[in-house]
Computed example of a mutant assay.
Amino acid sequence: MSDMTVRHNPGRERFEILDAGNVIGKAVYKEYDGGESPQRIFYHTVINEEYGGQGLAGRLATAALDSTVQAGSSIIPVCPFIKKFLAKHPEYSANVVPVAPAHLEFLDSALSARARG
């Protein structure tokens, strides 16, 4: 596990965890600017099955959320894993914005457009 790294891949709107350069997990988001400040809607987090149980999703979430806060964006937790992670890590609470219908409509529209494109 010494070759594990986390990187931000803004072109694909995701944070990735890599093992020896191979992507083995990701925390995917959409940028949303309909609020008072920039916001990141986290909607999917996954770690490849063979890497499960090693705490990698938590490591990925920590890096993704820390980077989001450092960038001055708020966290919108749609992803079930991110919601659960935030419940256990109150240090992020000042940077979390509750999910609103507008967030879900934006996300649905953006993902539908991507699927068609």
Rank of each mutant, 00 (worst) to 15 (best):
M1L: 15
M1C: 10
M1N: 09
S2N: 15
S2Q: 14
S2Y: 09
D3T: 13
V6H: 02
V6W: 02
R7L: 10
N9L: 00
N9S: 02
R12Y: 05
E13H: 03
R14A: 04
E16A: 00
D19G: 03
D19A: 11
A20K: 13
G21S: 13
N22H: 15
V23M: 07
V23T: 08
I24Q: 04
K26E: 08
K26S: 09
Y29W: 09
Y29S: 04
Y29D: 01
Y32H: 09
E36G: 15
P38C: 08
F42A: 01
T45W: 02
I47M: 14
N48E: 15
E49G: 11
Y51A: 03
G53L: 11
A61M: 03
A61W: 00
A64F: 01
A64Y: 02
S67K: 00
S67T: 03
V69L: 08
Q70F: 05
G72M: 06
I75R: 03
P77V: 05
P77Y: 07
P77H: 12
V78S: 02
V78A: 06
C79G: 08
C79M: 04
C79N: 07
K83V: 04
K83R: 15
K84I: 05
F85P: 03
K88Q: 10
H89D: 02
H89K: 10
H89E: 06
Y92P: 08
A94L: 14
A94S: 15
A94W: 08
P98W: 07
P98V: 12
V99H: 11
P101T: 09
P101S: 13
L104V: 13
E105I: 14
F106P: 03
F106H: 12
L107F: 09
D108P: 05
L111Q: 12
R114A: 14
